[in-house]
Design a protein around this nucleic acid. Structure first.
Lengths: 190, 190
DNA sequence: AAAAAAAGTTGAACAAGTTCAACTCCGTAA
DNA sequence: TTACGGAGTTGAACTTGTTCAACTTTTTTT
């Protein structure tokens, strides 16, 4: 069953009775999406939170200079949303695009509120998930400031080999914050 | 009273009865710290979470190359901690140093657990605070990738004028991810 | 008030990363 | 099969930011 992955993911963060697990799962609906299609586009309001069960996504923004900037990739077992747009009901700065045929468990904004209200441990679950997420963002800032582009590339490939293997160089470079031409040159270095 | 600032801060995030507010405040103790003293040093475990009521702090790490890297500044009305060390009871990578004589409301690791257990809305409070924090970290990543050093400097000074005015150029540059020499050159540009 | 230490400035040489243009390679649509 | 568009590669010129060293100014310590 496709909900097992979600339950296992939740159990990494908090202890959960199986009845609670089932109640949580009831709020999520499976959504199928094809390669290159968008789950969210810049300018629209993000009305969902998603958990990837199959495939891979890229979350990126296009800045004033027209450059694509990838915030993160989300493969199987990752969560997915524009947290700012979702929380504040405001137009998103982000695009979320499927890199391959994918499946996501989706919970709507409204259902998320109900989930928090009805299942007390949900607050704790997401509080802990968000804490862990902050740690990851902080580490990325430090890496961006203290490592060279080549060191960042090596770190990325070592830490996320499965995701890295699915990407074009252009996609990887937009995550690392460099041009694709420079990534090409980096990869040739000894 | 010094707890008013904390209560007002909390009310920005969730609705709170005055009895709940008082209960939360009871967990926090005032700590005074002098300029240049450390609230946390790299290698020790962060056993507290803090809320600044007076003064200003700098949270930074020293990398393998010996460079200081500032993760954030925290002035009055800001929260302060090494979230990774606090959460996982592991040695911190961060230093937290007072930039001037300061006062912080401190809650211990243990009391934080008790707070979550005894006051149900605390989970929601910190869940929401962490959400907002993630948005800020994500925006900083995007800025680091899409803006030049000069643009990042201008943004910083415009967005946090009070903090910026308290800093030496060296401290500001270590936040922006550039050398202090280059910041000096940037500031002279027209 | 003097001395010491830390912070800021400047210039020259250098390294890291970008831009642009030309070319190649590959998958896929016609 | 062709041709077309997207992805990767490469080189030359360029821009951004670093390094190091010397110097000045400000702050802190004694």
């Amino acid at each position: 069953m496709t909900y097992n992955l979600l339950i296992e993911n939740i159990k990494k963060h908090i202890d959960l009775s199986s009845s609670e697990a089932d109640s949580i799962c009831e709020f999520f609906k499976l959504k199928t999406i094809k390669k290159k299609e968008f789950l969210l586009t810049q300018g629209t309001i993000c009305k969902f939170e998603g958990f990837v069960v199959k495939g891979c996504f890229r979350t990126f923004t296009i800045d004033k200079k027209g450059n694509e900037n990838t915030l993160y990739f989300a493969a199987k077992d990752w969560w997915l949303m524009d947290i700012d747009s979702f929380m504040n009901h405001k137009p998103s700065d982000l695009n979320i695009q499927a890199l391959e045929d994918s499946e996501v468990l989706i919970i709507s904004q409204k259902d998320k509120e109900t989930l928090y209200a009805k299942i007390p441990s949900a607050e704790k679950l997401f509080r802990i998930m968000f804490q862990k997420s902050i740690v990851a963002w902080q580490r990325r800032i430090i890496r961006n400031h203290s490592l060279t582009a080549k060191e960042r590339y090596n770190h990325f490939v070592e830490k996320y080999p499965k995701i890295a293997s699915k990407l074009t160089d252009r996609q990887a470079s937009s995550y690392l914050g460099i041009t694709h031409e420079f990534l090409s040159k980096i990869k040739k270095q000894p």
